[in-house]
Design a binder for these strands. Sequence first.
DNA 1: GATGAATGAGCGTTCATTCAT
DNA 2: AATGAATGAACGCTCATTCAT
Lengths: 214, 214, 214, 214
Amino acid sequence: MNIHSVTTTTIPPAPAAGKREAILAAALDLFAERTFEGTPVPLIAEHAGVAAGTIYRYFDGKEALVNALYRRWKGVLRDELASAMAAGATHEERFRMMWRGLCAFATEHPAALAFLETQHHEAYLDEESRALASAIDAAVTEYVRTAQADGAMREGPPEMLLALTFGAFVGFVKQARAAGQGIDASAASASGDVMWSALQPDDSRTASKRKESR
Amino acid sequence: MNIHSVTTTTIPPAPAAGKREAILAAALDLFAERTFEGTPVPLIAEHAGVAAGTIYRYFDGKEALVNALYRRWKGVLRDELASAMAAGATHEERFRMMWRGLCAFATEHPAALAFLETQHHEAYLDEESRALASAIDAAVTEYVRTAQADGAMREGPPEMLLALTFGAFVGFVKQARAAGQGIDASAASASGDVMWSALQPDDSRTASKRKESR
Amino acid sequence: MNIHSVTTTTIPPAPAAGKREAILAAALDLFAERTFEGTPVPLIAEHAGVAAGTIYRYFDGKEALVNALYRRWKGVLRDELASAMAAGATHEERFRMMWRGLCAFATEHPAALAFLETQHHEAYLDEESRALASAIDAAVTEYVRTAQADGAMREGPPEMLLALTFGAFVGFVKQARAAGQGIDASAASASGDVMWSALQPDDSRTASKRKESR
Amino acid sequence: MNIHSVTTTTIPPAPAAGKREAILAAALDLFAERTFEGTPVPLIAEHAGVAAGTIYRYFDGKEALVNALYRRWKGVLRDELASAMAAGATHEERFRMMWRGLCAFATEHPAALAFLETQHHEAYLDEESRALASAIDAAVTEYVRTAQADGAMREGPPEMLLALTFGAFVGFVKQARAAGQGIDASAASASGDVMWSALQPDDSRTASKRKESR
DNA sequence: GATGAATGAGCGTTCATTCAT
DNA sequence: AATGAATGAACGCTCATTCAT
C-alpha cells in the first residue's frame, strides 16, 4: 500500500495519524454517507476533531480535499487489483483474486468503496484524478484483452465486459450493504462464480470449458 | 409498454407541455448530472424557463419535487419491466425482453436512468417512493425465484443475482454514456448475452443447457 | 354610525355585503391576530373568499387596505365616543357612557379593538388616518378640559389623564380577552368606577386617606 | 436594582460590549419600532455592525433572538419591581416605588419598554419566556391581594386592577413618547398619584365626593 | 369584474472560506 | 501551526403584486 507512505508519520489512517489523516478519514465517512455536496466543511472538521480553518492548512479547499481523498482510495484499489493480477497463475485465478480483492476492499473499507463508486465525481475531479482512473481502466482492459487472446474469455469489447463486471460488483456490494449483511467468503465466492461464468466464451459451454481459462 | 404512449404527450420537455412538466424535465436533467444536493432550485427554474417562485406552485418544495420525479420515472421503469415479464413466453425470453427494455429506457431516457440509478436517494425519498422501489424489487425477485424453481436459472439468493444483474446493467449504461456511444441493438443484445449466461445454472454448461431455460 | 353608509349597498359588514366588505372583514380578523406584517395578502383573499388579485381592484395595495380598515374602525369608535359625550348630562355621566361605549365596542368588535389599539401603526398609517386619530384626541381632550374647568376632574395635563385612562381601558380589555372572559356589564361598571375615581380631584379625598394606605 | 448595575457594562450597545450585545441592542431598537415580523434579520445585522451570518453564531434563529431579548428585559423589569416591593414600608410606598421604578425603566430603556409592552408576542415566545411573564404576574397579583386584605386597596379582582394599572402606565409612557417629552420626576409622580387614587377603597372617599364630579 | 398563475425581490438561514489571534 | 469568529454569497422559500384570460 504505497500510498500510505505519503502519510508523514504513521502508516494507516489511524486516529493517531495526525490531522491530515483525521481530516481525510472524517471526509471519507461523511462523503460516503451524505454526498460531497451534502457535507459541510465544518462538519468534516468536527468529525476530524480539528478546527474548520485547519482543513485549509492541509487542503486548498473542499474540492482539493475530495480529490486527495479520491486519489488516495483509488490508489489503494489500484494496488489491490495490481497485486491480484500479478499473483494469479491463470486468467481465471487472476479474475478470482481480483474479485476476492474487491470484496475484501469493500469489507475493510466500506466507506471508501461507497465513496469511489457511488458518486457523481464529474463535477469536481481534476485532471490528475481522472488520469488515475484511466490508468486503472487501461490495466484491467489489458488484462481482458490478453485473456480474450488466449481464448479464456468471451469475445466482445473489453470495455463492455469490464463495465458489466464492475457494475455487477458495485451492485452486489450495495445490495449486501443495504441488506445489512457483510460480504462473507462464501458470498464473495458465489458472486465471483456468477461473473466469471458471465465472462466465459459462449462456445466454451462444454465439459472442456475450464481448461481454456488458464 | 403503456406508459411509453403517455410519454410522447406528457413527459418530454415539450414547450407546450405546461410548466409542471418543464420543471420536472429541467430537474431531471440537472439532478442527473449534478446531484440533488448540487442543484440549486433557481437553476432548475432557469432551465425550465420559469421564475423560481413558480416551482413552489407545483411542488411543495425541492424534496417534493425530487420525489415526484423519482416516482414518475421509477413508475415508467416498472411498467417497462412488467410488460417485458408479461410478454415473454420462456424465462430466457422474459430476461431478454427485460434487458432490451432496460436498454431502450436508457437510450430514450438517459437522464432518467442516470437519475434513478446513480444517487444517494436515501436522504430525501419519502415513504411512497420507497414503497414503489420495494414493489419493483419484489416483482423481479419473484421472477428469479420462479425461474430458479423451473431450473432455468442458477441457484443462489435472488437478491444477489439481481444485484449483480442490475449492477451490470448500470455499469454498462454508464460506460456507454461515458464513451459517448449510444446503446445500439447489437450492444444491447451482446451485453444481454453476457448476463444471461451469468445467470445460467452451473450444471447447465453442457449442450443441453438452452432447453432448460424455457 | 355614519361610516357604514360608505358601504355601497348594505349597512353592516355582513357576509352578503360584497367583496370589498368581505376583504375588510377578513383583513380585520387576520391583522388583529397576526399583525399587519405577519398577514400575507393571499391569506386575506382566502378568508374573504375572493382571489388574491381581486383585493387590488378594491385597494391600491396592502398598505391602502390597512389604512381603509383603520379609518373605518377608528371612525366607528369616534362615533361611539361622540354620541356618549352628546348624551350625558353631567361630566361623570359622560365619562360613564364613554367607558360603557368602549366596553360595548370591545365586546361587539373585539378584533377591531385589538387591531386599533394593539399594533405598531406608525409604519404604514397615512396622513388622513393620522388626522382622524388626532381629531378624536382633540375631542376627548376638550371634554377633559371642560370637566377640569368645572372642577369635576382632577387637575393635570389632559393628555396625561387621557393616556392613563385609555391605556387602562386597553389593558383591561386585553386582560379580559387573555383570561377568556368577556366583559359583562358589572365588569364594565367596576372598571369604570376605578378609572372615574382616578380622575377625581385630589381635594375630594378626606384628610384621612393616606393612613388607610398602609 | 441589582440588574441595573449590570446594565452599564453589558446591556447598552456599547462598541466594546461584544457582538452578542450589539445584536441584542440592534434587535431591541428595531423590534421596538418596527415589530418582530417587520424587522428583517439583515437589517438587525446592519444596525449591529455585523454580517448577517454572525447573528446565527449567537442565536439559533430569529425566534431564539427575540426570546433572548424578551427574557433579558422582562428580567430587568422583574428585578425592578421586586426591589421596589421589597423596599417599601407601606403598601402605598411600595406602589409608589413600583410606579417610579417603571417610569425610570421607561426613561432609561424606552425601546425595551416599547418592545415588551407593545407587541403580539404570542406567536413566537417560548415556554420559558411565558413562564417568566407569569411569574411576574403572580408576584404583583400577590402584592395586590395583600394590600386588599389590609384594607389599603379597593376590592375587586386583582387581575382587573393590575390590568388597569399597567395599561395606564403603558398608555402614559406611549403618550409621553409620542409627545416627545421624557418622563420627568414630576410627571412620574403625578401619574402615580392618579393611579394610586384609582386603587383606593371606595369608602375612603367622603360622602360628598359624588357631588363634585358633576 | 374577477381570476389565479406567474413573477422576482427579498426573506431567514447555511456554509466555504478567511484571518486576527 | 492551529484556532474559530466572522464573513457574505448563495441557498430554499415566501409573498406583494401584476396581468393574460
